[in-house]
């Protein structure tokens, strides 16, 4: 475990908790894409099935359980507890356009043609695009609450730190996983436009709003 990986995980955890707290404290999920959150719940569920088959470390097991638990809690808050505040009309991204191609790709390109491995691959591919409904929603409404942008920044930072972690691991451990790396690059690229807006607007104290 190197420092980039650790801070990547912590950034990921921060993103998840920021979102949960935002919804809980404001008693509202306005501006949050429930579809993206369902996709993340699917991502964690299909990726961490190895909780049942192999033990890696206490850190690994506990982080996986926290990620899964928080993602289901978020989905519950959006679709049950604070459903009245859910902005379904603006959350109109067609997720089947993500799930179907990603599922097909996972069956075609994987490390091993076994159920667990295909589901893991599916989760890696799906994670790389799972934020799209959220970004689509922001582009539709033209704005995002500042706390939502902090969430997105932590999500993007997590993937960027993982990229540095993989460069590190390649040089010092000879480790690389092409599927994870390609998907991670795609995922990070999706955040670049947002990073730019975050730095030029949100960090200067302005609300994130897109030009009409």
């Amino acid at each position: 475990m190197n420092i980039f990986r650790l801070f990547g995980d912590l950034s990921h955890l921060a993103a998840i908790i920021i979102l949960l707290l935002k919804i809980w404290k404001s008693r509202s999920c306005a501006g949050i894409s429930g579809k993206s959150q369902i996709l993340f719940a699917i991502v964690f569920t299909t990726r961490y099935l190895d909780l049942l088959t192999s033990f890696i470390s206490l850190y690994n097991t506990s982080m996986k359980m926290i990620y899964i638990g928080c993602s289901y809690a978020t989905v519950y808050l959006i679709y049950a507890k604070f459903r009245a505040t859910y902005d379904g009309n603006h959350d109109s991204f067609r997720v089947e356009f993500l799930i179907v191609p990603v599922g097909g790709l996972a069956v075609l390109i994987n490390h091993d043609f076994s159920l667990l491995e295909i589901l893991w691959t599916f989760s890696i591919y799906l994670e790389s695009v799972a934020i799209l409904p959220q970004l689509f929603m922001i582009s539709k409404t033209g704005e995002a609450e500042t706390i939502t942008t902090h969430y997105l920044f932590c999500q993007g930072l997590y993937r960027a730190l993982y990229l540095i972690n993989w460069i590190w691991r390649f040089y010092f451990e000879g480790f690389f996983d092409m599927i994870a790396i390609v998907a991670g690059v795609v995922q990070t690229i999706l955040y670049c436009d947002f990073f730019y807006l975050y730095v030029t607007k949100v960090l200067k104290g302005k609300k994130l709003s897109l030009p009409a």
Partner: peptide, 10 residues
């Protein structure tokens, strides 16, 4: 061909 190894990353 890569063998399936435990995934230590999250």
């Amino acid at each position: 061909e890569e063998e399936a190894k435990p995934k230590d990353e999250l």
